[in-house]
């Protein structure tokens, strides 16, 4: 006989599916991020996306070779593209880590173990991921300010990510502490006859 699942558990099931999809998309993106950073730079001497597509149409192997050269070599030759690629990679890895922790938490909730110390640990790990993202965004913003010699990058998406992920990290730490406290209350409750 199967136990009837609560609404929370069904929601957690949905979160598990979404977390898995996002994690998968994120892992795929990590492979191509250096190439995206390269094409986004718009350097006149660089190959364009349209040119690469044309090479792929002409000969798939040639296209793949060019793409690998862009990812493994070309993108790291200029500081601008290298910093953008590094920032994007740090963000993608941090996001993957956060999704993984989210997946653990959702799976625990779906299993009916909402108030378990394991969830508190996962939230603490997710907080570390958020702080890594905030640090990467702050690093990129500072680098852009130094490079341009103007405070303009303070009004960019990267600058916006710094306080956003800092707040996200603090929120995760708070939730971790609250879940630990709730787990203690639950343990105390379970022991009461």
């Amino acid at each position: 006989m199967t136990m009837k699942r609560t609404a929370t558990q069904r929601l957690a099931d949905g979160l598990v599916v979404l977390s898995c999809l996002l994690l998968l998309a994120d892992m795929l993106l990590i492979l191509f991020l250096p190439a995206l950073a390269y094409f986004r730079s718009g350097e006149p001497t660089f190959m364009t996306m349209a040119q690469l597509q044309a090479i792929f149409v002409y000969d798939f192997d040639d296209g793949l070779g060019n793409l690998m050269r862009v990812i493994l070599y070309e993108v790291w030759q200029k500081p601008e593209t290298a910093v953008l690629a590094l920032f994007s990679l740090a963000c993608a890895v941090g996001a993957a880590w956060i999704f993984l922790q989210g997946l653990h938490i959702s799976a625990n909730v779906a299993d009916g173990e909402s108030f378990s110390p394991k969830n508190a640990v996962c939230f603490r790990r997710a907080a570390a991921g958020c702080f890594l993202l905030a640090l990467a965004a702050a690093g990129r913003t500072l680098w852009k300010i130094w490079q341009l010699g103007s405070p303009e990058p303070l009004l960019s998406c990267a600058a916006l990510l710094t306080p956003l992920f800092l707040a996200g990290g603090l929120l995760c730490l708070l939730l971790s502490a609250l879940l630990r406290r709730a787990a203690e209350i639950k343990a105390e409750n379970d022991l009461t006859i």
């Binding site: 609560t6 929370t8 929601l11 957690a12 949905g14 979160l15 909730v109 909402s114 108030f115 709730a182």
Partner: peptide
């Protein structure tokens, strides 16, 4: 969805 789950957990807690 996360907020809904957290809401349910806070309710339970």
């Amino acid at each position: 969805l996360l907020c809904l789950v957290m809401s349910a957990l806070f309710h339970q807690a």
